[in-house]
């Protein structure tokens, strides 16, 4: 299925990374395993956002909502109902997708800035509801101690579970990006007017992209609950969404794997900067300004740009 898309060497490289990641929990301290798992979850979220932002060119400014909806759905299903666990795990992404469709339906009718502003606002409504509906969502406190099946009870097992799901999702996203759908989406990003003129219903295509991306965001939300066993309104808060946006920018949004790099950098920075100072957002703001001024294509984009002649040659050989 993947043959021809990727070079053999790259596949080997990825396989080695995968094996190394499988070994990690048995050699690293608990805390680091946790941080890496958190990076996985956040990477999936950032990657899903990048489908819309980097490949779709839409200003999806409140992507965290779909992550939060996925997380809240699974947490509520597992704590308040006695349905089987897998139903909750499926319901999370499904609810995220439904929300994505509803919000996206409004947003794709608007131009880029309208789109961004309206999405921040509509997403914040969901945040406000989760925040105030104390009897259902626990309001400010959120829901803690979400029960997990025995299989996922240890942290190492959740780590493996998250790693496997992440890998499956990444493969699926890679296929999507390389599919006719993904190629058309990139064409829309580059030039929506031209796309209309070659017979593409741009809005419908964009809405599909949003729905797909929100599905993966919902999966990330479920994985978050698997890792943390809790949910809280901050998951739905727009500042988180913008933080994820920064991850895409930092890693490089015209690259496939860039957001993973961005997520890894931001999550580890937040963890380790958090030890020394409570002013994390100040640090984040400064990082963002430095990015805007010095690295607008992101870290990955910068290096790919530096080695573009090389990259082009590789592309030649693989065609």
């Amino acid at each position: 299925m993947f043959r021809g898309i990727t070079e053999k060497r790259l596949l080997w490289f990825l396989a080695i990374i995968f094996i190394v990641l499988l070994i990690f929990p048995s050699i690293l301290p608990r805390f680091y395993t946790y941080i890496i798992a958190l990076i996985f979850v956040t990477s999936l979220l950032a990657m899903s956002l990048n489908l819309v932002v980097g490949y779709g060119g839409m200003f999806q400014f409140h992507h965290g909502v779909f992550y939060g909806v996925g997380a809240y759905t699974v947490a509520l299903m597992l704590t308040k109902t006695s349905l089987p666990v897998w139903v909750g795990f499926v319901a999370g992404p499904v609810m995220a997708t439904v929300t994505g469709f509803l919000i996206g339906w409004f947003c794709v009718r608007l131009t880029r800035l309208y789109f961004a502003m309206l999405q921040i606002s509509l997403g914040s409504l969901i945040w406000a509801i989760a925040f105030r509906w104390y009897t259902l969502t626990g309001g400010d406190d959120g829901i803690h101690g979400v029960p997990m099946p025995a299989l996922l009870s240890s942290q190492n097992n959740s780590y493996y579970f998250i790693l496997v799901i992440l890998t499956i999702c990444l493969m699926a996203m890679y296929l999507i990006v390389k599919s006719p759908f993904g190629r058309t989406l990139q064409a829309i990003r580059d030039n929506p007017q031209r796309c209309e003129a070659v017979g593409i219903n741009v809005r419908r295509h964009q809405l599909k992209a949003i729905v797909i991306a929100t599905f993966f965001a919902g999966v990330a939300g479920v994985l978050f609950v698997v890792l943390e066993r809790s949910v809280f309104p901050d998951l739905l808060f727009w500042v988180l969404s913008l933080e994820v946006f920064i991850m895409c920018l930092l890693g490089g949004w015209f690259t496939f794997a860039g957001p993973i790099l961005g997520a890894a950098i931001i999550v580890s920075l937040r963890t380790f900067v958090g030890i020394y100072t409570e002013y994390w957002t100040l640090v984040l703001g400064v990082i963002l300004i430095l990015l805007i001024f010095f690295l607008p294509e992101g870290v990955m984009g910068y290096f790919l740009g530096k080695f573009r002649p090389l990259a082009k040659e590789v592309a030649h050989r693989s065609e």
Partner: peptide, 13 residues
């Protein structure tokens, strides 16, 4: 677009 394949997801383009 002409071949109505713009939305195809599962085959590499």
């Amino acid at each position: 677009s002409q071949q109505r394949k713009s939305s195809e997801l599962l085959h590499p383009a």
